[in-house]
Amino acid sequence: MPTTCFDVANYFFSRLDEDAGDVLSNLKLQKLADYAQGFALALLDRPLFPEPLVAWQMGPVCPPLFRMYAIDGPRGIPAPPLIDLSVFPAVEIELLNEVWEVYGQFAAWKLRDMVLTEAPWRETAVNDVITHERLKAFFLTQLRS
């Protein structure tokens, strides 16, 4: 069974240290999902999850994921009590670890500012799906730089 955007969200929740005050807002979760999907397309030549990313005003958004956590608004989303990472093959865990290490350190608004300068969002009309082809092409350039 393929992983979903909710599995990817659970991975990022699993990396939080809530005792240290780590939180994950919906905004930050959306941007991390975008980076995870883009790098999966570039490195694995396939999407990490089947749900689309859409160009919204504040950057790429996975609408089902957004709706799931919309009630939490900008506050931190409570992590689910049980997270099963066994749904991911080792290569996907490696990719998600790298995305977290590089991008998880940034605040939500910093990530938003970053994605608003990037081609996949800039070259997609608001409310249109950001194509896998566009994501892959851009993230391949990021691997080369």
Rank of each mutant, 00 (worst) to 15 (best):
L32R: 12
R67N: 08
Q105R: 15
N26M: 04
Y103G: 01
E98H: 13
P74W: 09
A125H: 09
E94G: 00
P120T: 06
A108C: 10
F12V: 04
W56E: 04
G38R: 03
E18F: 06
A55I: 07
T3G: 06
K110C: 05
T131R: 05
W109V: 11
Y69F: 15
L85R: 12
P80L: 12
L53K: 05
R46F: 02
S14H: 09
D7I: 01
A79S: 15
S14L: 03
K28T: 02
F13C: 10
A125M: 07
Y35L: 07
K31A: 04
R144F: 03
A125N: 13
D84W: 09
L116N: 12
F6N: 01
V115E: 01
Y11M: 04
E123L: 11
P64W: 02
L53N: 11
D84V: 07
D128I: 00
Q30Y: 01
A33P: 02
A33H: 01
P60C: 07
P89S: 10
A20D: 14
R67H: 05
D22E: 15
A107L: 13
P2F: 01
E94F: 04
D7K: 02
A108M: 07
K28S: 02
P74V: 10
P50D: 02
C62K: 02
M58C: 07
A119Y: 07
R144M: 10
V54T: 14
K136W: 03
R134F: 00
W109D: 13
L95T: 03
G21V: 08
F139G: 04
K28P: 02
V115S: 14
P81C: 04
D19P: 00
L82Y: 14
A33S: 13
W109C: 00
M114T: 14
E118K: 04
N10K: 10
E18P: 03
D34A: 14
R15M: 14
P63G: 06
F49V: 02
A55K: 06
I77Q: 11
V23C: 08
P89W: 05
L27F: 09
W100S: 05
D22N: 14
A42G: 08
K110P: 00
L27C: 08
R112A: 12
K28I: 02
M1L: 13
T131M: 02
R134C: 01
K110Q: 14
A137C: 02
L85I: 14
N26G: 04
L43F: 01
L85W: 06
A55C: 06
E18G: 05
D17F: 07
D113I: 01
F66D: 11
S145V: 12
P47K: 00
G21H: 11
V115P: 01
F138I: 04
I93C: 08
K110V: 15
V87A: 13
G38P: 08
A42F: 10
R75A: 13
C5W: 00
R122V: 06
V61A: 09
N127Q: 14
L48R: 05
W100I: 00
T124K: 07
I130H: 09
E101S: 13
R144V: 12
V115C: 07
P64F: 00
G59H: 05
P63F: 05
P81V: 05
A79K: 14
L82A: 14
E118C: 01
P47D: 00
L29P: 13
K31M: 09
I71R: 15
E94R: 06
V91P: 00
D113R: 12
D128S: 10
G104A: 11
R15K: 15
C5H: 03
A20C: 06
G59E: 03
P89A: 12
A79N: 06
D128W: 03
